[in-house]
Design a protein around this nucleic acid. Sequence first.
RNA 1: GGACCCUUAGCUCAGUUGGUUAGAGCAUUUCCUUGACAUGGAAGAGGUCACUGGUUCGAGUCCAGUAGGGUCCA
Length: 929
Amino acid sequence: MPEITKSYEARDVEAKWYAAWQEAKCFAGHAAPGQETYSIVIPPPNVTGILHMGHVLNNTLQDALIRRARLEGKAACWIPGTDHAGIATQTMVEKHLKKNEGKGRRDLGREEFLKRVWTWRDEKGDHILKQLRELGCSCDWDRTHFTMDPGYSKAVLTSFVKLFNSTDEQGRACIYRGKRMVNWCPTSLTALSDEEVEMRPTKGFMYRLRYELVEPSTITDAEGNVTPFTHLILETTRPETIAADVAVAVHPDDVRYTHLVGKKVWRPLGERVQIPIIADEAVDPAFAAGALKVTPAHDKVDFEIGQRHQLPVIDALNADGTMNEFAGPELAGMERFAARKKAAELLEASGNLIEAKAYENNVGYSQRAGVPIEPRLTQQWWLRYPRVEEAKQVVRDGLIQMHPERWSKVYLNWLDNIQDWCISRQLWWGHRIPVWYAKGIDREKLTEADLRDPNKIHVSLEGPADPENWIQEDDVLDTWASSWLWPFATLGWPDAEAQAKANFSQFYPTTTLATGADIIFFWVARMIMAGLEFAKPGAPVEERIPFKHVYFNGIVRDKQGRKMSKTLGNSPDPLDLIQKYGADGLRFGLLQMAPLGQDVKFDEDRIESGKNFSNKLWNACRFRQMNGAMSDNSSLGAILARLDASQLDDDDHALLTALLDTMKTVERGFTDFEFAGATQRLYSFFWNDFCDWYVEVAKARVQDPAVKDHALAVQDLVIRQFLLLFEPFAPFITEELWSLLGYAAPGKPFVQDARIESPADLIAALNARGIQLDAHASGRVETLKQFVTLARQLKTEQNVGQKRDVKFLALGADAAWSALSAALAKLTRLVGAAEISRAAAELALPAIVTPFGTLFLDTGVKVDAVAERVRLTKELDTVGKHIAGTEARLANVTFTSKAPAAVLDGARKQLAELQAKRDEVARLLASLG
RNA sequence: GGACCCUUAGCUCAGUUGGUUAGAGCAUUUCCUUGACAUGGAAGAGGUCACUGGUUCGAGUCCAGUAGGGUCCA
């Protein structure tokens, strides 16, 4: 048996065991027929991403879940992988190209550019998966997937083709192409979905403008006064688009303007043209002066107004956010924000700018590029979501449970207001849409009927048989239109052979999805719809859902509650933390501060405490090893066989009771996703119940040959069960100790080869050895602990806290003394005294009142009566207050008549104890003279 | 504007269905390197549980409102 070193060196241990696990294929997900399964798909990080604290929390949780499942004997499978992350990766490579070669993607051409992206991916990708290994993640690496792999790509294209040929719940084609207003990112040069747009309050100006009436009018008020009416007043934040105005709209019921409807105003910028005044319900008469400039090309509401009134569309912006010739000669070619300034200057010069006031409003930003998006009219592919109603129902019915439950509401609310999904992206890195257009047709003018005409449009995986007559769509699919297939595409779908090989039928639906709530719409909701639609056609709904539980972990924030970000530099590098505190320390510390569904305020001290706990565990095991040779630890049965039921004392009973309680807490932690509670109980059990008390108490027993084997067997038992409970959270140190203390059975070298006992299993195993746990032992041990604390307190107060040769004298009734003397040996040791003997009468010595009567401390020095009197008086005062409170409670008739008996008894008992204590303290005071 | 969450010790957080004197880690005070562990041990100090009202014999816990902080959706 190798000797355990003085302190725990995490890094050596971690590297060794991870290699061993991989070598032994410990993480392989195989399901035997009929075996209960537990499967998780990883939220695939961006292929070029690096590990941050959010990943650490998310993946530690998944690893804990999957490791626990293994210990419970389930066929566990955790599928890893990465996401091609269309925009993010393409942008990254483009930047790199620009910097190193001074070229853009168009200089290289599509084919060459994609080659470069693949090279980049091969060189720099998957780094994050290696980092997850450092953390101890037990993914089945042989199942690593990438959303652009051939098999996965086939799944993506298959899903598109299937959707193209199917209808939504209202019988409409799921996929259509249409020229509609989209969120356009002028930096990435692509359309975005609504979810990729982030509203941010943005400071700017509200420009108050005059639009001259072509035929000035007059207003006649109630008194018959007539005033000239020469212009309309409008407000806009975007004067640079004025040249694209095609009308001014007012509310049809707005009496201020009804007489003007049908008349015209001069457009104040660009070519001097007249535009009509129209009436539309969409105008808010209360906003500004109640008139709205209508610019159909650059605003969604305006576009809809334009449609209703058959207005032309003038697009004054280029794709990259610069103005084009329709913006007028002064603005053409300018960048949009410069043009805004310039437009204001021009308006001011022409006298049409009344004022520009500072204004803050919500502006949509491209989440990825961080620039304001432009509403832009373009041809895109759209998806009408399938299975929307079913997706709501599975959550309402609890087939899919969200934790914390409140996220269900957010989810349902989104589905209630669901909008069609713009799935095409004007990118190259991604899955190219499997649509071919017949040569010679005008793509801009395809009707819904044309889309379904196989002579004009070809949609398939393989492409047309006569490719020379067709041109493939340039656009690729939104990244999320590939990752929404993740739970089943990683299990081989749609290839039957691959599915069989991957144990699709056993691992789907997966058990738990652990992710952040920030992607509940992007990913979670869409996966549910995709799963219902594709995974097991025709199967009952409970077999089609992609997962049964969704656990939303919090966001890791810094101490001030800010999100961790590169720019703020407030995000510690997880690998540094692993270096400093060990992977186990990081995992354990982080989980301790991660209560269900709350954001985590990161505190490095907590991680340090995780490391310290590792060391504590290490040393407790080291001490066990030093106390006696290891006997057969290879199974629970073997250890139990070494227990002597007749030797079990109160401490054994109390410890085993606490162990059972810990087992229950941890079990509940896993079913309810209450990991913080589980880790905290593990901590307090091991440190307080086991080390602080039991190991100390057992020091005496271990010296006694008659009970030594038994006492060590209890320790071996508790350490074994603890390691099993702790392994999911701290796999490295537990593995090392499992091995060092001989818990591994022959041919079963790893912790995961063992089966964790449930609390009921352990009770049954104890019963089978003739052991019934004594429910009252814990209370008696608690009393002894109190006695020890009080005795130590007395020593500290008398400035002999560290001396071990002091003498105590206890004055109490026969019953108290007999209880005390039964535990005398260990108490003497624990309080640090030469002896504790019985006093015959009150003594003129410093004293403290304990549950076993009054305890006097003989330091050999004359007692300081004045100091004692002060101390005892204070004590008497405190006790008196508690007595008064309890008496008042008991004197209340409504309390005594309504409170349950147990509470009443407790109060009465407490009062009696307090009164006895008061009397004793009073006697002591009196004896001081 | 709608929905949700949070407010407990100096800091970060626990506190299960209402029930003795509200807990932990870190920080802090005093003492201790005694044979597991100084990454440690012992003893202590530190809290009107944001505020107001209600329900109840009893509220950190349940209800309503107020204030402050945060998130999501419009």
